[in-house]
Structures are given as structure tokens and as C-alpha cells.
Nucleic acid binder design. Structure first.
Lengths: 213, 213
DNA sequence: AAATAAATTAATCATTTGATTAAGCAAGTT
DNA sequence: AACTTGCTTAATCAAATGATTAATTTATTT
């Protein structure tokens, strides 16, 4: 029986397999992915993926964890930054997200599908359930803002939902949208670039702040 | 070799299998669904599902076609109605959609995942690519509106995207959101009910029409 | 150079899975 | 009662699939 390599002498092969797995898993999802697909995509023998990662599931967990970190932690970093204003948070978040999504358009559908398929395992087991909702700095700032406003403000969860919806959903529906309108990928990405500026404006007018920076 | 039944004597069994298939496929997706899952869910023998539907794929196509009709055609009906104003279209569409999504929260992720997995087959083969983008009545109305406005209006595709994003995305991200905030399904649905009124208001202020009916 | 360890492959295994077959049953028809 | 037809099941098949094994090649150490 072979041992797992203790020291990473040549990261190349292991990394190539991981990259191949990332592409295949992200494109097709866990259930539709065959270990042989990953072998073929990586250019290595099937047995090698088990040699390095023990099982399909373990490899998947690694890929998923990486995606979740991109998908969640980066947001939390921005949303939780005490140095930036609400306004800035939003602009940074949206711009950052759209850049990331233009590069990795398959991530949201992949992550949300797999969470839907296996919520318990993916949310609790992969241990990013530390962040407490109440502690998020953005929520505090929102409450402060709400205290100064005369009019009753809506549940801040709506605003968070709106930011994420307006930013992420277009990428999720892109295959359908592009097919039905005949839009090219370039044209789509151009639209998404436009949204970097549009979404913050929209969110502002939603909140009732007409200050269009 | 058995023949397919020409006349539907007892719709009960076939319909029960279809309903079971709808539940399992919609929840787990095509690739993760085993024909045995459908058999078990329906309470019938495995062979029966092939007796009635010939194959897993044919059964899936039937389920998917039904979902696509809910997901697309109903929208097109509303969006293409010459009798309603832009304002009314939007309100009807959103309210109708949210009702449907509260009842069937898994449909959007299911449909979009499967389209992503197999765009060619699902979009072109299932023949709902008849509707021409330019012919949509909403687009005409938007152009008319744009002609009367002084300020330059944004690409109407953004507005369509926004309506769909704000309406559908919360349901797609619901498992993640609910888990992270500890929100109950009832509380979530209540939020979605709120959005029936909020989204049209938001869209209006985005367009620059402060007429909050 | 010999010996040891790590990387890689071809072949194979055991299970799962979509599908079929053949037989039994229920209901109506002749 | 015998016959036909549609419905249902248990048993089975063949291919796909995740994983392992044993052998081979390559690299590293002594």
C-alpha cells in the first residue's frame, strides 16, 4: 500500500490535478463529474487522483472549500471592515464581485447548487459558521443610519439580498439569457462592467439617498 | 417486449411516478437522481418507471419541459400582453412569480443548473426558442417611454435583469441565507411577501419614476 | 552504483446503476 | 371458461464508475 507523500516535492502534478478537478467540478457539479473526467482533463492516470487525494469526495471538499472562501470570506472581509463607510463597502463589494465573476462565471451556480444538494455537510462541516450575523459591521452601520433617518427603514436583509441579487444573478442566468437574446459573451461582460457603477446608484435610490457620488 | 400504453386507462400510477420524479429531479438534479430513487419515492417498482417512460432521460425531459413552461412561458405571457402598462406588467409579473416561488422554491436553481449543464439540448431541442426578443411588447413599451424621457435611459435588458434578479435570486440563495442567519422558512417567506410590494417600488425609483402608486 | 522512496500506469475489483426480461396478476371480452 | 390486454413485480444484465493493487518508471539518498 502506498503512502501519501508527506513532503510536497513536486507541486506540479498534484496542482494540475486539482486545477483539472476545479474546472470539471465547477462546470458539471459533483454528481455529474466522473473521476475519469478529472483524469482525462488533467492528462494523468485515473489512479493518480486517488493516490493524491484518496477519493473523489475528498478532492471535491478541497475544491469546494476554496470556492466557499472566495464566495463568502471575501465578502465578510469587506462587509466587516470598520474603516469604510456603508457607501464604500457597497461599491467595493460590487466591483470586486463583478471582477471575480467575470473571471469565474460558473462559481455561483456551482456553490449554490452544491449547498442546496448537501446543506448540512457543506455549511456546518466546512466550518465557516463562525461569523455571527449580529457582529457584522455593516449591520451596525445600518442601524446607526436608521437611527438618524426619520422614515422607517426596511429590513437591512433586503438590501443585502438586493446587492447580491443584482450582482450575482445575471451570471447565473447568463447561459439562458445569452442564448435567448443571441448576446455574445463580450457583450454580456460589458453589461456587467456597466453594472459596477449602476448597482450602487440603484441601491442608493432604493435606500432613499439620491447622492449619486 | 411491452408496448407503451396507447390509451390512458388509469392515470393514477403514471401520474404518481411523474410526481415522484418531479420531486426527486427538482431536489437533486438529473445527475444525482437514481431511477431507484424515483421508484422508491413513488412507491412502485423500478421497472415501472421504464415501462411508462422508456428511460430516465425521457422522463426527465417531460419534467423539465413542464418546469420550463412555468419558468419562461408564463413570463412571456405577461411581458407580451399589449393590454397592460409597463407598470402593471411589472407588478403582475413579480407578484405572480413570488407566489409561484414560495410554492416551488427549488425550481429556479434546478432549471438554471440543468440549462447550464446542457444548454444546447434544453434550449434548442425543447423548442421554446420561437419568441423573438425584438417582438416582446415590453421592449416596445420601453422604447416608447424612452422616447418621451429627456434623460438617456439605460439598456432595458438591465431592468429585466433587475426584476428577475430581485425576485428569483433570494430563493436560490435561501438555503445559504437561512442557515447563516438562522431564519425560519416562515420568516423567509414573509420577507418574500414583503418584496412583492417593494420590488416594483425599487424598480420605479431605478427608472427615475418616483410615482410609488 | 546500489538502495530506497516517490510518482505513475495498466489491469482489475466490487458496487452502483440504467435498463430489460420473463413471469404473475387483475380486469375486461368473447 | 378461455382469451386478450394492460399493469406490476422479482430477477437479471451489461455498462459505468469509484477505488485498489501490483508492477514499472523516475528521482533521491547513501
Amino acid at each position: 500500500m502506498k503512502k501519501q507523500p508527506e513532503i510536497e516535492k513536486n507541486p506540479s502534478t498534484e496542482e494540475k490535478i486539482k486545477e483539472a478537478a476545479r474546472r470539471v467540478f465547477t462546470k458539471k457539479g459533483y454528481a455529474a463529474t466522473r473521476t475519469r473526467d478529472i483524469a482525462e482533463e488533467s492528462g494523468f492516470n485515473l489512479a493518480l487522483i486517488n493516490y493524491y487525494f484518496r477519493s473523489k469526495e475528498k478532492l471535491f471538499d478541497i475544491i469546494m472549500l476554496e470556492h466557499l472562501q472566495i464566495f463568502i470570506h471575501s465578502v465578510m472581509g469587506i462587509v466587516n471592515d470598520p474603516e469604510t463607510t456603508l457607501q464604500e463597502k457597497m461599491e467595493i463589494l460590487i466591483s470586486h464581485y463583478i471582477d471575480m465573476l467575470i473571471k469565474n462565471p460558473d462559481i455561483p451556480l456551482f456553490v449554490l447548487s452544491e449547498i442546496n444538494a448537501n446543506p448540512v455537510k457543506l455549511i456546518s462541516k466546512l466550518g465557516f459558521n463562525k461569523v455571527q450575523h449580529g457582529n457584522i459591521y455593516l449591520v451596525k452601520q445600518w442601524k446607526e443610519l436608521a437611527a438618524t433617518q426619520k422614515q422607517l427603514l426596511i429590513n437591512p436583509i433586503h438590501i443585502i439580498m438586493n446587492v447580491l441579487s443584482l450582482t450575482i444573478f445575471p451570471f447565473i442566468s447568463s447561459p439562458l439569457l445569452r442564448n435567448r437574446t443571441g448576446m455574445s459573451l463580450e457583450a454580456f461582460n460589458k453589461l456587467m462592467e456597466e453594472r459596477k457603477k449602476l448597482i450602487p446608484v440603484w441601491i442608493n435610490v432604493m435606500i432613499g439617498n439620491s447622492n449619486t457620488n
